[in-house]
Structure formats: structure tokens, C-alpha cells
Design a protein around this nucleic acid. Structure first.
Lengths: 345, 345
DNA sequence: CAGATATTTTTAACCGGTTACAAACCGAAA
DNA sequence: TTTCGGTTTGTAACCGGTTAAAAATATCTG
């Protein structure tokens, strides 16, 4: 059954004694309609609370006014932030944003893309997932590339696909800020607790870590660079335990995201050490959770509002066929909280 | 410009030398098409990677295959959980779920509903926001009610609108489990740190708190019931400070959600007390954050997978015009972690 | 093999809007 | 009054699918 019979523009036109063209013009606020007709029609529209079908409009204009978005899992605060900003901005521009959770499963990513093609989305924003992998899985690359030839694909990240737009955060800068912050506080034994190394952020952060350590004349010890695997607090906890079991543990740890930082914090506390007194911690993402732990965790901060704006602006410009930046790098900053302490020489 | 000219079913039909009806039948897997034609057409479909327009299909079938969803803010893990489950299930049933963040602003809630009407969504799932308020804001009530007459509206919560479907969690049961758990551990001075009292969950939880305390022969002290306002960790922190400043502070605190529980935990630690040694804590939601704090927080648990399934099942049944439960109450349980301790008499 | 029946295919209307183009209208100038 | 240009309105085609009904074709009977 679904829906009771909806009222259409024909019904409105008949009752107002005008043509559908006139009603259509009034609804879409085109000029060149006499005021009296406009009033008469509007009254009937209001009376029935008529809302024109976006589907019919979409068909006749051959455009959906929909933007698709893929992310691995919106329960992750990072993606929730991006989606929230984009959804808000899209709505302001009269677009609808459709979000799909891919769980980084190739079959799902591909299936969603195919469904979005059917929906005739006007652009696709891809956040994380397989697009972050290096190298890109071939079938995924092929699907995305084929899609990018038809409509603008905006990657929230870095990814070697020449026909996509890219907006990414300056993770290297964030890492640089984190290392310098700790170096300034007198830390020399600094560790980096990272996630999967086949993710581009990991590679960028790691390179920046090594580089900045060198700039600061600090030794980069191999045992201080820990691949903890997944990006969750369990990994952070395990990785930190490994670091604490070293004969000479680090005095400061940079974790690749806040979840791992929180896990590291737990490991430290459980083994009887204190933060920041014994060990300092810096995270990445500056998400809500940095304020839930005791102490609060200093973290590399992103301007999500700006991130969302760049993603949506890029998508809309590209949809419009206008020239726009193919690669944008957004600045990061460091939010200093309570998890780092100056240490004596 | 937008999109390059898309291929249509006419193009396929012409190239295959058949009518569009035949192509349509093949695409929608209807029986009654000869195998040879089926192969021939399928080959051409594959060759061009043709995907039929969901918009055109939607118009001709007068159904959108879209379900709308409203929530205050998907950055809140509770809503992210629900959305994730629903999105997954909707996709399995070949529906698209469109999520809008309303920030509990009346103007936005109404604007989104109107937009969803234009999109001809087949059902609307409302999570929290104004729908949780008691009493319902009149204009909101009116908008929602009008909408509910056209298409099924499913409220994730409790709400006195006779023409809506409702799926809600048994918060009273959760509260009961929390109080009994603490009572069994020997606690007599139990506090309840809650959020806005014009929200139905608050009222349900409060009533259950009083009732269970009475059943356990424990006194409910007015100063142990704290209205902390918003549902965030700041409120939890402030509310807990107030409790700790009493001449006889409670030995256990139940917080209305995990964020507030985490805030309360911070307040306790900052004032030099220990959890669970001095004070026990129970939260609600059993979200990720209960595992990020030290100690992990015991919390009332919801089965989000079941919650999502009930919401989507209800929506789909109602869309189908089938008889289905107008009011479903889902069980809750208590996940015991590390934040509660037995106290000596 | 004719005639009846079952299966496959095509034709054409329909879904509900938009918009190019034609027609009607209106006031001003000739 | 006629003519002209500009404004307002209507007609009808179109967007890209689905599907009822008609037509064509295949299969079965006696």
C-alpha cells in the first residue's frame, strides 16, 4: 500500500484554473507570474500543504541533488565529525547527503558505489576505508576510477588517483607540532605508537616523526616505533605495554589517534606509573574522548568545520563544472591539555 | 555540466533490437523472458556498465525506497550506534537511509521533515530530539502528526502520539538493575545524577530509581537526586562536585549516561577520592567510552543490533501496510566492569 | 494441420514534475 | 485603430523507467 495518493501539481493547477506550467513557475519562484495568480495558487498549495515530488523534479531536471558519502564506521568520532559538518552544509545548499558505512570491506564499498550510481548522486565523498590503503586494492581502484570519470569524486585523504579531488589534513605538520612540543618540554626518549603501516596517514606521520626528531637532534630508536595494528584502544594498551617492558622505556608517547592514546594511558596507569608525571602522552584527532580521561590528553586538532566545508565546496564546484583545486591540504594545530609535563635534564 | 549524458534503457533496447519493456523485465529479473534475449541484453548492459536510474524507477513506481531518519547529533555515540545498525539493515532490504542532524532545534527538525516529504521517503524514524520532550512542543507535534497520517513514523523512544509507532528501551529495567547491583554490594547511600527533567527517559529513570530504592528498603534522599542539566561530561563533573560537597556524600552514583558518568569519575578523582574504593559509579548506554576511562565504568547495556532491527522491521512492515506492534519495549542489561565495589556494613 | 492455449514481446500510457516554444494579452507609439 | 514589443500564460514534449493490454509467436491437442 505504502502511501495514500499524493496530491500533484495537476490537482493544484486544476483547482486554481491555471496550467501546470504556471504552478511549476510559482513553486520554483521564477519571475514572470502575475501577483494575483501567484497568490491564488499559493493559497491552494498551502491549503493542501502540497510539496512537489523531488523524484519527479529529479527526473525532469536529470539531477538528483544528492551527494553520496562513504566512511568505514560513523561510530568512529572522526567520521561522525566530518559527516555532521558535511550534512549541515549540504542541506544549506539544498542537497541531501547519503552516508554509507563500509566497514572497509571491499564488497560493501563496491556495492555502495553501484547503488549510489543508480541513485544518480551528483558527487561522491570518500572518507577513509580502502581509499587510505597503499597500494589501493586493484578492483576498488578500478571501480572508483570508473565512477570518477562520470561524476566528481572527492577523497577526504590522500590517494594516488589522478581523476579524483583530494582534501586532506596535514598530518605531517601535526606530528611536527607534537614532537616539537615534547622536545621543548625536555623529552628525549619519545615513542610513536602507530596503526597499520599500509595506511597513508601512518606513513606520513612516521616520516614526519623521523624527520622532526632529526631536526631536534633526538635519536629515533627503532624499539620506540611500535606498530600496534588496529586503531583502537586495545591496540594502544598492548603497544604501550610493550614500550613499558623495555629496559629503558620512553618518557613520552605520541599515539596515532586518541583511542590509542587512551589505551596507552590505561596501560601506564595499570602498571603503576603516572601521567604526566612519569610519562607524557599526545594523541591525534582531538576528539571528545581526550576530555573524558583523567588527565585530559593533549592532541593534534583538526578544524572539522573547515574540513567539511572544503569537502562540500569542492564537490559543489566540481558538480558545477567549475575549476577547483584538485588537492587541498588543511592545517592542523596542537591542543595542549594535561597529559604532558616538562622533564628535568 | 554535471554529468555526462547517461545511457538509458532506450539505448540498451535499441542496440539489443528489443523493446524497453523487455530490457526492463530483464533488469528487474522478472520471469517470462527467453534465455537467448536475456543473454543478449545482459551482455550489452554489462558492456556499458548500465545501471537503471533509481529516480526514473521511483517516479514510475511512485515509491522512493528511501527511509528518513532524524537524530540530534550523530557525534553522540548512542545515535551513531542506532544509525549504523539501521543503515546496514536498510541496505540489505534495498532501502536507502537518509540521516539528518537536527541539534534538537525546532526549526531544523521541521525543515528536515518537509524536505523528507519532498523526497517522498516511505517512512521516518525519529531518534531523540524534540520527540523526547514532555510535553511535546505544539508546532512540532502538529508537524509530526500531520506527517504520520501520510506515512509511518517510528519513534525510537516513548512519546504520546497515537498515530506513531514506538520502539523504546526499558530504561526502568536498566535503572532497576543498577540500583539492585549497588544494593547487593552493600551500598545504602546511592545518588542519581540525571539530565533535563523534561525528557521522558529522565522521568522514567527517576521513577524507577525511587521505586527500586523503596523495594530495597533504602532511603531516597532528595539531596542525592541531582539535576545536572545537559547530558555531557561537564554536567556530570559539576553535579558530582555538588554531591561530594555534601556533609554525607553518597557511596555510589548512578549517572543517566556514560558521558556524565565519565564526568563524575573525573570529579571524584580530582578531589582525591578513588573509584571504586571510595565511590562506585554506574552509567547508562554502555558505550565505547566506558572502556576508555580508568577504571572502566559499569553501565546499563542496550542491544543496538536488536534496537536497529526493531526500528527497521517496524518501518518496513508499516510501509507494507502490514499489522505490526505499535509499541515495543526492548530489554536492557547491566554490564559489570570495574567501577563498583562491595562496601562493608 | 487447424484451432486452442500458453508464452513471449511490443506498444503505449503513465508516474509528476520542468521548460522550449507558441499563443494570448497588454499598454504605448504610430 | 493598427502595430509593435514585452510580459504572462498555456501546450505539449521530455526526463527514464514500469506495466497493463494487445499482438505476435510458440506449443499442445485431437
Amino acid at each position: 500500500m505504502a502511501v495514500q495518493k499524493e496530491i500533484t501539481i495537476y490537482d493544484i493547477a486544476r483547482e486554481a484554473g491555471v496550467s501546470t506550467a504556471t504552478v511549476s513557475r510559482i513553486l520554483s519562484n521564477t519571475t514572470g507570474v502575475k501577483q494575483d495568480k501567484r497568490n491564488r495558487v499559493q493559497a491552494i498549495v498551502d491549503k493542501y500543504n502540497f510539496k512537489p515530488s523531488a523524484i519527479a523534479r529529479g527526473l525532469s531536471e536529470t539531477r538528483s541533488k544528492v551527494i553520496g558519502m562513504l566512511c568505514p564506521d560513523v561510530r568512529n568520532a572522526y567520521y561522525a565529525n566530518i559527516f555532521m559538518e558535511c550534512e549541515r552544509l549540504a542541506f544549506e545548499k539544498d542537497y541531501t547527503l547519503v552516508l554509507n558505512n563500509t566497514f572497509t570491506r571491499e564488497s560493501l564499498e563496491v556495492a555502495f558505489i553501484e547503488k549510489l550510481i543508480e541513485q544518480r548522486v551528483e558527487s561522491l565523498i570518500v572518507c577513509g576505508g580502502l581509499a587510505d590503503w597503499r597500494p589501493l586494492p586493484p578492483r576498488y581502484r578500478e571501480t572508483l576510477s570508473r565512477f570518477a570519470k562520470r561524476i566528481p569524486v572527492v577523497i577526504a585523504g590522500k590517494c594516488d588517483m589522478e581523476n579524483c579531488y583530494q582534501v586532506c589534513l596535514n598530518h605531517a605538520e601535526g606530528m611536527r607540532l607534537a614532537v616539537k612540543h615534547l622536545a621543548t618540554l625536555g623529552h628525549k626518549r619519545i615513542a610513536f605508537l602507530h596503526g597499520y603501516s599500509f595506511i597513508y596517514q601512518t606513513q606520513d606521520k612516521l616520516a614526519a616523526f623521523r624527520l622532526t626528531m632529526e631536526e631536534e637532534n633526538l635519536p629515533t630508536r627503532d624499539e620506540y616505533i611500535v606498530d600496534a595494528g588496529e586503531f583502537n584502544e586495545q591496540s594502544g594498551l598492548m603497544g604501550m605495554k610493550r614500550l613499558l617492558s623495555l629496559t629503558e622505556p620512553p618518557t613520552a608517547v605520541i599515539a596515532t589517534n586518541d583511542l590509542m592514546a587512551a589505551g596507552a594511558l590505561q596501560a601506564i596507569l595499570r602498571l603503576g606509573y603516572a601521567v604526566p608525571n612519569d610519562i607524557s602522552i599526545v594523541g591525534f584527532d582531538d576528539s571528545l574522548i581526550t576530555d573524558l580521561t583523567e588527565p585530559h590528553i593533549s592532541s593534534v586538532h583538526y578544524d572539522y568545520a573547515l574540513y567539511g566545508k572544503m569537502l562540500i565546496d569542492t564537490a559543489l564546484l566540481a558538480i558545477d563544472g567549475q575549476e577547483c583545486e584538485r588537492f587541498t591540504m588543511l592545517p592542523t594545530s596542537l591542543t595542549v591539555k594535561e597529559s604532558c609535563r616538562k622533564i628535568e635534564a
